[in-house]
């Protein structure tokens, strides 16, 4: 089974909120100093799912990303985990692309790769939390789509996907080729091996630009964006926490229960 996994490089979403900074004037997020960008965690779980499928059914995993010059870093990370190949889609003209343009750019590249059975995307990117690209990409490519997958399997030549719902799950069957968005219930992704890191770091990642993928200039970049960001701000937190203390934790616990009773909460 040949799988394409679409991944995105984002600022580390695990940074403590105090380190999260904005430039409200230019409506931009200021990258945290000294903390390198990472692969979007949901995309890393999509890579994990692809690796599990490859272990079972064989085939090739190709990583696709679009972003600035440093974006090939996340491709290398996926290679270090066990993916076979990767391509970075990078061009000044791609900058400022919204989800529709991003999906368009990816679909142009997928059409060139051609030889695939399954496209995997993370359920959303942990920066803008849009959760749009996977679905739009499926529409662009005319592929059947199953969203929020926890497991994917092959049964009688069809893809069987377990989709997570709020109070249970659904099971879908779709034919190949298909697109599946991956939810975090897939579980923790594996860690790269030392050898994996070394060999991935030596790889040259091919870079495709707008011309290579025959991108229509009217469909990419800032000007193609269907929405405009009018404001970006950090919500104010007005809460003040009353810390309950005691000589021991147990004493504090008893005080807490009394305090909650006083407030009428319990």
């Amino acid at each position: 089974m040949n799988i394409i996994v679409c991944v995105k490089q984002i600022p580390d979403p695990e940074i403590p909120p105090v380190k999260f900074k904005l430039d409200t004037e230019s409506r931009c997020v200021v990258p945290p100093e000294g903390i390198p960008p990472v692969i979007n965690p949901y995309d890393e779980q999509a890579v994990e799912l692809a690796l599990r499928l490859k272990e079972k059914h064989g085939g090739k995993i190709t990583i696709l990303t679009t972003g600035n010059e440093s974006a090939s870093g996340v491709v290398k990370h996926a290679l270090s985990l066990g993916a076979d190949e990767g391509i970075a889609l990078t061009d000044k003209a791609f900058e400022g692309s919204d989800s529709f343009s991003t999906a368009y750019i990816l679909s142009q590249a997928v059409r060139i790769i051609r030889d695939y059975d399954l496209v995997l995307c993370g359920r959303q990117a942990a920066d803008w939390d849009e959760s749009l690209v996977g679905a739009i990409l499926a529409e662009n490519l005319g592929l059947p789509l199953v969203t929020l997958a926890e497991t994917v399997d092959v049964v009688d030549g069809e893809l069987k996907v377990k989709r997570v719902t709020l109070d249970g799950y659904q099971v879908f069957s779709v034919s190949f080729p298909a697109l599946v968005t991956v939810s975090h219930e897939v579980g923790q992704p594996r860690l790269p091996s030392g050898w994996g890191i070394v060999s991935a770091s030596r790889r040259q990642i091919p870079v495709w630009d707008a011309k290579d993928i025959k991108a229509d200039p009217a469909k990419i970049g800032f000007d193609a964006s269907r929405r405009k960001l009018v404001k970006l701000f950090i919500p104010k937190r007005e809460k003040k926490c009353e810390m309950i203390e005691g000589k021991t934790t147990a004493e504090a616990s008893v005080k807490l229960a009394e305090r909650l009773r006083q407030e009428g909460v319990i």
């Binding site: 309950i244 934790t249 616990s253 229960a257 319990i266």
Partner: peptide
Amino acid sequence: HIFEEADFGIVGDYREALPPLIEKCKALK
């Protein structure tokens, strides 16, 4: 960071904090 958002907070191991909290809540109930 949870303490920035909480109304009441206890700093401590939950294994030590919860049993007396459970007992006290039982008594209050």
